[in-house]
């Protein structure tokens, strides 16, 4: 999927997240994870860090080399943000540790920050002819 496709998918998920209530914290956490992943791929494809057929899925799948490589070009915040969300998923999305709603709120903050960083890298530029 190309950068524009990932951006469209991220924005679809964000519109759905807006329909969630605070007690839907599992899906806010997981939805933020999915949307963040699409924003990361939109940004990385846009700056040609990764090809359209090579997507980031989880931060923990990426090697230390890739993390450094991505961080040098695009900034560490992309994978660091995804990793923070992924750390919260076992506790609150799959588990029932207290604080799910606060964790969900934090995930939405991470999503907002990563969306802004992706857009700043130019993923909102008009498509080339």
């Amino acid at each position: 999927m190309n950068a524009e496709g990932h951006r469209a998918k991220a924005e679809r998920i964000e519109r759905s997240l807006a329909k969630c209530r605070t007690d839907d914290y599992e899906m806010i956490i997981d939805g933020a994870m999915l949307a963040v992943t699409h924003w990361i791929n939109a940004a990385f494809h846009f700056v040609e860090l990764t090809d359209d057929d090579s997507d980031v899925i989880h931060a923990y799948f990426e090697t230390a080399f890739d993390r450094q490589h991505f961080g040098l070009v695009a900034g560490a915040a992309f994978l660091d943000g995804l990793e923070e969300i992924e750390t919260l998923r076992p506790l609150h999305a799959r588990g029932n540790v207290a604080g799910g709603e606060a964790a969900a709120k934090r995930c939405l903050e991470i999503l907002q920050g990563i969306r802004e960083k992706a857009l700043a890298l130019g993923t909102d530029a008009p498509a080339a002819d």
Partner: peptide, 12 residues
């Protein structure tokens, strides 16, 4: 319209 989150909620 909400396929991705609807699907994920279904799976979860």
């Amino acid at each position: 319209d909400d396929y991705e989150l609807w699907y994920w909620a279904s799976l979860s």
